[in-house]
C-alpha cells in the first residue's frame, strides 16, 4: 500500500459517550487501505461493537468522523455490508433463506429474476447451495452464519464489516468459516474489517491488527502481519512470525489491562 493512495476507510479522533455514562470510545484514529484485511481486537466490553456501529454509519459518534473513500459517512453506505455479532437475530425467521439473502437486493430494487440468480450464486459461494426454500431456524448455527455472510456479500460490497462472526460455532466450523472469509476477500478484492476477541484468529486472518484498551477504548497499537497472502490453518499457525505476533499482542493487552486507570 503506497502512502499516496487514499485509504478506503479512515477514522479520525472518534469518540463515543452513551447518554449519562462514561466515555466508551476515546479519540480513536485509524486507516484501513483498500483490499486490506483489518482486524480490531480488544477485551470483552471494550467497545468494539460500538466502534463498528460508528464506522458503518449506524450510530453517530459523539466526536470525530469516519470517511469512506474520502467522503464523510453519516449513514450506512451501499458500498458496505455488515455481519452482526448476533447473526441469528439479524435474519428474518418468517422468510426463507432465499428471501433473507435477497433482502438487500430488494432494498435496491433489483428485479426478481436477477435476485434469484444472484442469491443462488452467493449461496453456492458460501457452500450452501439449494437451501433457498428452508427457514433460518431449520439450519444449524454455522449454516445461519453462512447465510448472514451470504446476505452481506450478495450486494458485492467493497467493504465487509464483521462483528465477532465466528464466536459461537464449533472449532471445525470456525476454521472453515475463517478460510471462507479469507478466500472471499481475495476473490472479490474486498476490504474487510473484522472484530474479534480471539488473538489467534486475528493474526491468522489479518494484514493489520488494531489493539484496543478498555474503559474507555483507546487505540493501543496497530500491528502489521507479514504472513503473506496465502494462509493455511496448520502451516501459518506453526510459523515463528505467527507465534511472535501472537505473543506481542497478548503482552500488549495484558500490559494495558494491568495499568492503573
Amino acid at each position: 500500500m503506497s502512502d499516496t493512495s487514499q485509504p478506503r476507510l479512515a477514522l479520525t479522533d472518534l469518540s463515543k459517550t452513551y447518554d449519562g455514562s462514561t466515555p466508551v470510545l476515546d479519540g480513536i484514529s485509524l486507516t484501513v487501505g483498500a483490499g486490506e484485511f483489518f482486524s480490531i481486537v480488544g477485551p470483552s466490553g471494550a467497545g468494539k461493537t460500538t466502534l463498528l456501529r460508528c464506522l458503518t454509519g449506524l450510530m453517530r459518534p459523539t466526536d470525530g468522523q469516519v470517511t469512506l473513500d474520502g467522503i464523510p459517512l453519516s449513514e450506512p453506505s451501499p458500498k458496505m455490508s455488515l455481519v452482526f455479532q448476533e447473526y441469528t437475530r439479524s435474519l428474518m425467521p418468517w422468510a426463507s433463506i432465499g428471501k433473507n439473502v435477497a433482502l438487500p437486493l430488494r432494498a435496491r430494487g433489483v428485479p426478481r429474476a436477477e435476485r434469484t440468480s444472484r442469491v443462488a450464486k452467493v449461496l453456492a459461494e458460501v457452500g450452501l447451495s439449494g437451501v433457498e426454500a428452508k427457514y433460518p431456524w431449520q439450519l444449524s448455527g454455522g449454516m445461519q452464519q453462512r447465510v448472514a455472510i451470504a446476505r452481506a456479500l450478495v450486494t458485492e460490497p467493497e467493504v465487509l464489516v464483521m462483528d465477532e462472526p465466528f464466536a459461537s460455532v464449533d472449532a471445525q466450523t470456525r476454521m472453515d468459516l475463517e478460510d471462507l472469509t479469507r478466500r472471499l476477500q481475495q476473490d472479490h478484492r474486498m476490504t474487510i474489517v473484522l472484530v474479534t476477541h480471539d488473538i489467534d484468529e486475528a493474526v491468522y486472518l489479518s494484514d493489520q491488527i488494531a489493539v484496543l484498551s478498555k474503559n474507555p477504548a483507546r487505540l493501543v497499537e496497530v500491528v502489521d502481519v507479514p504472513l503473506g497472502a496465502e494462509r493455511d490453518q496448520i502451516h501459518t499457525r506453526e510459523m515463528s512470525t505467527f507465534a511472535d505476533l501472537r505473543g506481542r499482542i497478548l503482552r500488549t493487552i495484558r500490559d494495558v489491562q494491568t495499568q492503573p486507570v
Binding site: L58, L82, F84, W94, L103, P104, R106, R108
Partner: peptide, 27 residues
Amino acid sequence: ADPTLVDAARAMRLGPLKTMVDIYLRA
C-alpha cells in the same frame, strides 16, 4: 421486531415503507 434485525435493515438501506412492511409488520 428484533433490534438487531432493524439495524440490519438500516445497514442495507431498506426504505421506511419496506422496513415497515417487511420487518415491523411481519415481526
